[in-house]
Design a protein around this nucleic acid. Structure first.
Length: 333
DNA sequence: AAACAACGCAACCGCAAGTAC
DNA sequence: GGTACTTGCGGTTGCGTTGTT
């Protein structure tokens, strides 16, 4: 017998295709009274000529009473895009963050609308990176322009190299005494630091011992950074609020522990409230930094997030002092 | 008005992982 | 440990609806 096929499917001719109202009623009545228990036995007990798999799908995607009906809100769409940037095509995990929505309808939404929307905004829906950057990588323009910028996160300095206003690479530079802070510079599409005497520069990613696996630039009103540790390899990822033309993401990986003492549980952080996002992520919100000079322009949040599962290769080290959770930091400007 | 294309949604299919025996 | 079976997930397909020519 082939794996994944129900034995009942071979024993009798079963109905396929759209469900009739009568079938819906039978299934709904049965599960309401008895629960689904073993799905393979549901159709027989409910008097349906369907396989258990079909019954389960109909219940999960349509009959379940806790489903939210109607069109997706703009907020939901943005959240899906943001979560997709972190989770990829893990529709069930994305759906877990949107109460009342099913993985199937989120998948349909993504394939029919959101992918198109991102492409129209110049963002690769697979990588969530600007499409222009790919073009640059393939054929650098003779008129291209590179810059170096600085970023301070806690006491660590990071060098960021940009090209044509896109972040090319990032590496930790050295430890400085400046208190941590990061600053977004909208005009430059860059993240820099509160300490303008020192710098976080973006460096070429092919020579540093702190290799950056993948990143691009951001120019938006909101960004996320998530962190992880795999066997000593620290990863962090900054993903902005996708969906507008100026959105971008940054994804960094290093083979050192450069963030090991930088990011943690934000023990000294000042808690700030962002009820809506807390609700989305069912998590606690922490502030981790503010600019002295542009305090009104930026707020930095750190999320302790136990809901979102990390990417493969982005597994959190449970034994780590600092990485026992997946963290998301949101920068608002 | 008809033909065609694009879209949106529901459901199916195949696979992998988990479980029971 | 091997086999049969169940469950859940993601990719894909089919079809009705809507828009365009």
């Amino acid at each position: 017998m082939q794996m994944g096929r129900h034995s009942c499917c071979y024993r009798q001719k079963l109905r396929k295709g759209l469900w009739s109202p009568e079938e819906d009623e039978k299934l709904l009545n049965f599960i309401t009274k008895n629960g689904h228990g073993c799905w393979s036995s549901v159709p027989k007990l409910a008097g349906l000529l369907r396989c258990g798999k079909s019954c389960r799908l109909r219940w999960m995607n349509y009959l379940r009473p806790d489903l939210k009906r109607g069109a997706f809100s703009h907020k939901e769409e943005n959240l899906i895009i943001e979560l997709h940037a972190v989770l990829g095509n893990r529709w069930s995990q994305i759906a877990a963050q949107l109460p009342g929505r099913t993985d199937n309808e989120i998948k349909n939404l993504w394939n029919s609308r959101l992918k198109k929307k991102l492409k129209q905004n110049g963002i690769d829906p697979n990588t969530h990176q600007p499409l222009l950057e790919v073009e640059y990588d393939k054929a650098p323009s003779p008129n291209s322009k590179s810059t170096n910028h600085k970023l301070f996160l806690h006491n660590n300095r990071y060098d960021i190299n940009t090209h044509n206003n896109s972040i090319i690479s990032c590496k930790p530079y050295d430890i400085v005494e400046e208190s941590f802070y990061s600053l977004y510079e909208p005009n430059l599409n860059l993240i820099t630091t509160s300490n303008h005497n020192t710098s976080l520069c973006f460096m070429p990613n092919n020579t540093s011992s702190h290799m950056i696996s993948d990143l691009n630039y951001t120019n938006n009103n909101a960004s996320f950074i998530s962190f992880g540790d795999i066997d000593g390899i620290q990863n962090w990822e900054l993903i902005n609020s996708i969906g507008s033309i100026n959105s971008c993401s940054i994804q960094l990986q290093t083979n050192t522990d450069f963030l090991n003492t930088t990011w943690g549980l934000a023990e000294s952080a000042t808690a700030k409230a962002d009820d809506k996002l807390c609700e989305y992520f069912n998590t606690t919100l922490f502030s981790v930094g503010n600019s002295n000079t542009v305090q009104d322009q930026i707020q930095t949040y750190l999320y302790s997030d136990e809901v979102i599962k990390p990417e493969p290769g982005f597994i959190i080290d449970e034994a780590s002092t600092f990485w026992n959770n997946n963290y998301i930091m949101q920068l608002r400007f």
